[in-house]
Structures are given as structure tokens and as C-alpha cells.
Simulated scan of single mutants.
Amino acid sequence: MLLVFLGRLAEELHMPSLPEMMFGDNVLRIQHDHGFGIEFNATDALKCVNNCQGMIKVACAEEWQESRSETEHSKEVVKPYDWTYTTDYKGTLLGDTATLKVVPTTEHINTEKLKAREQIMFFEEVLLFEDELHDHGVSSLSVKVRVMPSSFFVLLRFFLRVDGVLIRMNDTRLHHEADKTYMLREYTSRESKISSLKNVPPSLFTEPNEISQYLPIKETICEKLEFPEKLEPRPETSLETTCAKSK
């Protein structure tokens, strides 16, 4: 049954195979008691993979795809195919009658406030998928959440390292302060060829937090996720995380 489910999902996503470690049941969900909110899950993230452009042409790509096309649940190889699973996923909005309104903004997340010492009431890291790219690097997507008395902060990170070729990092940051009726969402895409990182210690290539400062910014999107109007009582949010074993 599991192989059938994975096969159907791969077919739906137009992929010959899914990441080696696909945590399909893992979810981080932030939801208001009126039903609106945002969640982060692996399936919706993979739906954002662009199989038509931005593919990485390296010697190992064809070999890797051929090895994956022989898996039991893959009956047909769909081309073109982004074998790195690069995604610009920023979360899935929730709600039927009421939803968050996405509005472009010039306002940025106040990182200085986040640096202030404050009690951490809850912290969790949820892995959504990971793949070692046939031993040629790593492609992973994970989401972290930190809840303090005055706010909460979420970091969704897609990290890609293709050995000898490039490093790419797509970060989505989400911040909500308790006295605000909106959340700030910042998406930043960074990328660099390995050949442009000659002065960077190779040991940092496997450390996303360290290597990020050396990766040029390719794209930045700042948005407000505004709460629906006329909500009573005072806006409150609930937070739920679900973790499961790899599928």
C-alpha cells in the first residue's frame, strides 16, 4: 500500500521518484481558533518544484535519474526532471471561510528583537524531506519554530549542495508579535557556484548557518499575512507539529 501511495504521489507531482527520505506525515501547523493559518508540509513543497527550468546540468545528473527510474514505484520517467528537488515553497495557507490576506510590504522582520533574551516556551524542528543526490551532495527541507511570550518565529529552509557545482539556499522566515494582527513573511533565495567560493573553507559547505553569509542573494520577497477583519475575541493562535518516520 505504501509503494502504491508513493507511486501515485510521484505521478501526481510529475516526478519519476520522490526524495529518499520523504516525511509525508510531518507537518508544522499554525492555526487561529477561527480556522485560518499556515502550515508547512512536504507534499505541497514538492508541488512547487519547477521541472521546466533552472535544472542543474552536471555529469552525475543522468546517472542519478537512471538509477531512480528503476525503482519499483516508478513506471515512467518524466522529462525534464529537477533531480535536486529545488522548491520555493513558502507555506500553505489554511482556512475555508476566513484566510490570511497576503500583501506585499517593505516592512522587514526585526532581527534585533529576535536576538533579545527571552524565555523560549516551545521549540521544535521538523524535517520534511532529504535526499543525498546519489552521494553527490544533499537536498533537504526542514522547518523550525520558536515560541516566546511576546512572539513566535518560524524558519523554513531548503538547502541544496551539489558537490563541486553549487550551493543553494531558499529561506522563508515567518514572525508574529503578540500585539499585531498580521505576520511578516520574508523569502530569500541565495546561490553560489562552488568555483566562486575558493576563499571559503570547504568545511563550511556542509553548515547552512555558516555558509549562508557567503551566498549572494538572488531574490527577496517581503509580505504581510494579514488576519481577517472583525475577529472576536482577540486574535490567538495555536501551534501544532506532527512528526513521523520516513516513508
Rank of each mutant, 00 (worst) to 15 (best):
V4Y: 12
G7Y: 10
A10K: 10
E11L: 13
E12D: 15
L13P: 10
S17K: 02
L18C: 03
P19Q: 04
P19G: 05
E20T: 15
E20Y: 12
M22I: 13
M22P: 02
F23C: 07
H34C: 04
H34R: 10
G37K: 02
I38R: 01
C48M: 11
V49P: 12
G54D: 01
I56R: 01
I56S: 05
K57G: 00
K57P: 00
C60Y: 12
C60E: 15
A61N: 05
S69N: 10
E72M: 13
H73L: 11
S74N: 15
K75P: 04
V77L: 15
K79L: 08
T87N: 06
L94I: 02
D96K: 11
T97P: 00
V102E: 12
V102F: 00
V102H: 01
P104Q: 09
P104H: 09
T111C: 07
T111L: 15
K115P: 00
R117Y: 00
E118S: 10
E118T: 05
I120V: 13
E124V: 08
E125P: 00
L127P: 12
H136A: 11
V138H: 04
L141T: 03
V143M: 07
V145C: 11
V147Y: 09
V147G: 04
P149F: 00
S150L: 12
S151R: 14
L156P: 06
V165C: 08
T172E: 04
T172Q: 00
D179A: 14
K180W: 05
M183G: 05
E186R: 14
E186A: 11
E186M: 10
I194E: 08
I194R: 00
S196D: 14
L197H: 05
P202T: 11
P202D: 14
L204A: 04
F205A: 01
T206P: 00
E207F: 02
S212F: 01
Q213L: 06
E219H: 14
E223A: 04
L225T: 03
E236M: 13
E236A: 13
T241S: 15
